[in-house]
């Protein structure tokens, strides 16, 4: 597996930024501290996005999220791994931001 290329995908992707901050904000408002909740929220979003992506693709309505996938698919990367790498990365970023903010607010 060309790990360097998948890492490049993570480095340059911007798709999840809004959700990352929304997740952190939600957790802070609810004062939840459980990391598994971050993962659960991400997973729900991720599965929802997968369904959303399928619906939009079949309707031939393109969204930015899938457009950039063509770039990586043209390099021979598997889109399932792109999803997985994105998911793991987002959980890590959300967790990091959440615990950092919580540390400074406490």
């Amino acid at each position: 597996m060309p790990i360097k290329l998948y890492l490049l995908f993570i480095f340059y992707k911007k798709h999840f930024t809004i959700l990352t901050f929304a997740t952190v904000l939600l957790l802070l408002i609810e004062s939840k501290t459980d990391l598994s909740l971050i993962i659960l929220l991400k997973l729900m979003y991720f599965l929802g996005l997968k369904v959303w992506h399928k619906l939009l693709t079949i309707n031939k309505i393109e969204i930015t999220y899938t457009d950039s996938f063509f770039f990586y698919e043209n390099l021979g990367l598997h889109n399932i791994y792109l999803f997985l790498f994105g998911f793991v990365f987002d959980c890590m970023v959300s967790g990091f931001i959440f615990y950092t903010l919580q540390y400074f607010m406490s």
Partner: peptide, 16 residues
Amino acid sequence: YLSGTIKYLSQKDSIP
């Protein structure tokens, strides 16, 4: 696309 031998130009921008 997994073979790396096919290239596809989509209708919309795909380069990050």
